[in-house]
Design a protein around this nucleic acid. Sequence first.
DNA 1: ATATAATAGTTTACAAATATAACTATTATT
DNA 2: AATAATAGTTATATTTGTAAACTATTATAT
Lengths: 156, 156
Amino acid sequence: MNVPVGTKALILSKRYYGVLSKSLENIDIERYYSILYFLNENDGCNQQHICNNLAIDKTAMVKVIDYLIKSGFVDRKVNPEDRREHFIILTKKGIKQTEEIVNAFKAIDAEIFSTISKSDKNTFIKVLCLLTNKLNDLPSNDLFFNYKKTAKATKK
Amino acid sequence: MNVPVGTKALILSKRYYGVLSKSLENIDIERYYSILYFLNENDGCNQQHICNNLAIDKTAMVKVIDYLIKSGFVDRKVNPEDRREHFIILTKKGIKQTEEIVNAFKAIDAEIFSTISKSDKNTFIKVLCLLTNKLNDLPSNDLFFNYKKTAKATKK
DNA sequence: ATATAATAGTTTACAAATATAACTATTATT
DNA sequence: AATAATAGTTATATTTGTAAACTATTATAT
């Protein structure tokens, strides 16, 4: 199927999260699993750090963290060194259930990569990161003007 | 950054669509570009066909098509051979602006793959499709049980 | 040192995306 | 002819995304 890579990636992620949420019906929350996965390795970071790494808007993040606090998964704690920052810290319950969430993520990754060679998998992950970084750096207006040029060139 | 492949794919798609919408500020609509990209190669298909290929719910698709009709990009036409189906057909305006949309998608793909070898690109696309298909086939409950087993195994 | 700018987070409001259930119309199956 | 399946629609509720305006705090630049 010929679709752009951004669209393909979106479709993959939709199906992936569909399978994931089926796998995690026994967990007390039904979303934000990726944030808990991230916190598992970045426990105690501030909200902005999560936003930067998972490409989530900071106003949305407020509600996410509110939800996770209400569910008893994390706490907010003001950084005494820089009182603008709020550290997000997994609770005991959060740590415990996050362990299962991480396992579920890893089980899916293991399953879907099971028929793919080590070398293809490495290439895939490498290119996925490169593309994301590239998009990150893209000064959209440059591309805009480039595109407009080529669009006009192909038109006439 | 260690994040699961589904999350990585979601981040990529978010950044991708961010860049895309900046590239397409001159187009009369501000979303659903991927549907027009798809229609460019599947003009006249029914709504379900779009849903299947782009992993969009059919109730959401109704609103999408309503919007595209209101914007003058497509028409709905009942299939006389099977009156349940509605064909989605690009209008003249739709065809014209879709051409630009397709060019914008291709410009981004070209740009972000510009520093990646042909062979790595091919591997990436191949694996992306394989993973998506794999997720598609995944009988979620099998995975669920597999996961629960391993989760319990690692717990004790 | 103080005015200004920048950063982290919050609130509000609204548009859009997503999910579910119940529904109509039509066609296929038995 | 009854039943089931399919394509699409409507209605509803929740979640998510986006933007602007805001507080509090820290960094910077005269």
